[in-house]
């Protein structure tokens, strides 16, 4: 049963002098509780696609529905995590999360809001830093606050816009693991729509990976399922043959886009070439 549906999305950014045709003919369906990652080059229009799917950016053509409802404006039961954290610098970590909780559950008394915010901050291991301002926190901690803020509103859909893109490799691996845990622990299934340029991250977290062609007029390639058992860990995936195979088919699709800009023939089932060396994990 498809939960999120994108139909023939087109997006053109127009200024009086220029016109950038970013997206063309984008179709995607995401099932309820599914974790889908869109993987593509920087500048291909991934963030625009996420903005359109969440209702933040109106498309020039096409239709978006979530749970059967047409999306106009930001979808009410969604949370979002931006690459640059987007925390309000004049509030503490706790106040930032509380603000979101209060706006999502206006009927709740203050003590319950505080309890909810505290609980989610503790889930991302920020119990000791709740009263610090974003400027006093490291990049990884800021992104933890942003993740706690997104989960604390108990969303049905979570939009993640390169959530770990600005972090160093080690922090990135830790946070990926925490996000993985949060998704597994959620009280009701969360449908996740993630944008990333990191294939390993996508394999660790997703049920399905959808590569995106290079812009302009970017569109989505065929989806590649990730039928690996959960919970997953980055170190296990390094040596898992299926993970390696998925990795290489994603990379092959993406590099195919890079060369001719068109959709290549789908080879998802072809075995990974033994000679293909994986890029160093530190690239993450």
């Amino acid at each position: 049963m498809s939960f999120i549906e994108l139909r023939n999305i087109r997006k053109i950014y127009r200024t009086p002098k220029t016109e950038r045709h970013v997206l063309e003919g984008v179709n995607l369906t995401v099932d309820e509780g599914e974790f889908v990652s869109i993987v593509g080059y920087t500048g291909s229009g991934k963030t625009t696609l996420l903005g359109i799917a969440s209702g933040l950016i109106p498309p020039n053509a096409g239709r978006i529905t979530i749970g059967g409802r047409t999306v106009e404006g930001f979808y009410p039961e969604a949370g979002i995590v931006f690459q640059n954290y987007s925390l309000l610098p004049w509030f503490s970590a706790l106040e930032n999360v509380c603000l979101a909780v209060g706006a999502a559950f206006p009927g709740w008394p203050a003590t319950r809001r505080l309890r909810q915010a505290t609980r989610y901050l503790e889930m991302v291991n920020l119990g000791n830093a709740m009263h610090k301002r974003p400027s006093q926190l490291s990049g990884g901690m800021r992104q933890r606050v942003a993740i706690a803020r997104a989960f604390a509103v108990e969303p049905r859909v979570l939009f993640l816009d390169e959530p770990f893109g600005a972090l160093d490799a080690l922090t990135r691996v830790n946070l990926q693991q925490e996000l993985h845990q949060l998704c597994l622990q959620a009280e009701r299934p969360v449908t996740v729509f993630m944008i990333t340029n990191n294939v390993d991250e996508a394999i660790l977290l997703s049920d399905r990976i959808v590569p995106m062609t290079r812009g302009p007029r970017a569109t989505l390639g065929p989806g590649i399922p990730v039928p690996l058992p959960r919970p997953r860990t980055a170190s296990l995936l390094l040596h898992d043959e299926r993970a390696v195979r998925i990795h290489s088919s994603v990379v092959r699709l993406l590099t195919g886009f890079a060369h001719d800009g068109n959709l290549p023939v789908h080879h998802a089932s072809s075995p990974a070439r033994a000679s293909r060396t994986r890029p160093a994990e530190a690239e993450a």
Binding site: G73, F82, S86, L87, L88, A100, A103, A104, V153
Partner: peptide
Amino acid sequence: HDYWNVAKVLRLS
């Protein structure tokens, strides 16, 4: 623009 987005995303009154 980020702050406006935050207001939109959190659905602040």
